[in-house]
Design a protein around this nucleic acid. Structure first.
Length: 260
DNA sequence: AAGGACTCCAACCGCGCCCCG
DNA sequence: CCGGGGCGCGGTTGGAGTCCT
C-alpha cells in the first residue's frame, strides 16, 4: 500500500519507512525535539530528507496521533468544517483531536466526499430548514449539540475547548523560546558526549529499550530551589552531540544561549 | 479461478508563507 | 526592502488490498 523503498540521486532513502527508521526518528525527537527538520535526519542517523522525517513524525509517529476508524462524530464534524473551510485540511485538523490533516484529507476523499455530495443532493430536495448533516440526525447527543443550530465559528471554539492542551509532548520537546530554556533535553548520563550522541546501533538499542520510553525528560524537571531551571552544565551533564556540533553552525548559537 | 477495476492511505512533490539577516 | 532558508500545506501518486465480473 506504500511506495517501495528506493534511493534517490542524493543517496537519500525514499518510500516506505522501516520499523528501525521509525524507532530512530521517534527516539531522537523524544530526546532532542525537532529542532531543525533539515538537519535532524543527519543527527538521527537517518538517510532521509528532513521533509520526509517531518511528514513521518507528524502523520504517524507522534504519540498523540490517533489511529483507527473515524467516529460518526468526527465524520460529521469534518463534513461540517469542510463546508465552512473547504480544503483547508490543517484548519479542520485543529478541531479534531489526534487526527492529522493528511489523514482527514484521505478520509474525506475516500469516504466523506460522496457522503457529503449525497447530503447536498438530498438537501436540495428538502426545504431550507433541513440543512443538517448525517450525524445530526443520529442519536449521538454530543455531535448533535455541537452541530444543530450552532454558528459555524462556534463549532471551532466549542470543539477546541473539549480538546486537550495543544502543548503536546511533541511541542513540549521542542525549544521553548519564551521560557528561555530548552525543554527538549533529555539527559541520559554523564558518560561523555560520544557516549550518548553518535547514532550507533548500540546507543540506539539503549534508547529504544527499557526505562527510556517511560521516563519523562529529565531536563524538564531540573530546577533549583527557586524553581528556576538549572543549566545542563550546572547539573553535571554535558551537551549531547547535536548541539555540540551545531555550534559550528551560525544558526545554532541562539540555542546555546537558551541553554545558559 | 482469473484478472481487471476500484478503494484506500502512506508518502512524495511543489508551491507559498514566514522569519531572519 | 530583499533574498534565502525552513517549514507547513494541499494536491498528487503509487501500489497493496479488496471487490466485481
Amino acid at each position: 500500500m506504500v511506495r517501495p523503498p528506493s534511493i534517490d540521486k542524493n543517496g537519500l532513502k525514499k518510500g516506505e519507512w522501516s520499523p528501525e527508521e521509525d524507532d530512530k526518528l521517534r527516539s531522537y525527537i523524544q530526546r532532542y525535539g525537532h529542532w531543525n527538520w533539515r538537519l535532524l535526519p543527519k543527527y538521527a542517523g537517518l538517510k532521509r530528507c528532513g521533509k520526509s522525517c517531518r511528514l513521518r513524525w507528524m502523520n504517524y509517529l507522534r504519540p498523540e496521533v490517533k489511529h483507527g476508524d473515524f467516529t460518526e462524530e468526527e465524520d460529521a464534524l469534518i463534513i461540517k468544517l469542510h463546508e465552512q473551510f473547504g480544503n483547508r485540511w490543517s484548519t479542520i485538523a485543529k478541531s479534531l483531536s489526534g487526527r492529522t490533516d493528511n489523514e482527514i484529507k484521505n478520509h474525506w476523499h475516500s469516504h466523506l466526499k460522496k457522503r457529503a455530495n449525497q447530503n447536498l443532493t438530498a438537501s436540495d430536495v428538502k426545504d431550507d430548514s433541513s440543512c443538517q448533516t448525517e450525524a445530526t440526525q443520529s442519536s449521538e447527543g454530543e455531535a448533535e449539540s455541537i452541530l444543530i443550530g450552532t454558528p459555524a465559528n462556534m463549532i471551532i471554539l466549542e470543539s477546541s475547548a473539549l480538546l486537550p492542551s495543544t502543548s503536546s509532548p511533541t511541542e513540549s520537546s521542542s525549544f521553548s523560546s519564551d521560557s528561555g530554556r530548552m525543554s527538549g533535553f533529555n539527559v541520559v548520563g554523564v558518560g561523555g558526549v560520544e557516549d550518548i550522541c553518535l547514532p550507533s546501533s548500540e546507543i540506539y538499542e539503549a534508547q529504544s529499550s527499557g526505562d527510556f520510553w517511560s521516563q519523562p525528560f529529565v531536563a524538564d524537571n531540573i530546577y533549583n530551589e527557586d524553581g528556576d531551571p538549572l543549566s545542563m552544565e550546572k547539573c553535571g551533564f554535558e551537551l549531547p552531540l547535536p548541539f555540540d556540533h551545531m555550534f559550528y553552525d551560525d544558526s545554532a548559537y541562539f540555542l546555546y544561549d537558551l541553554m545558559q
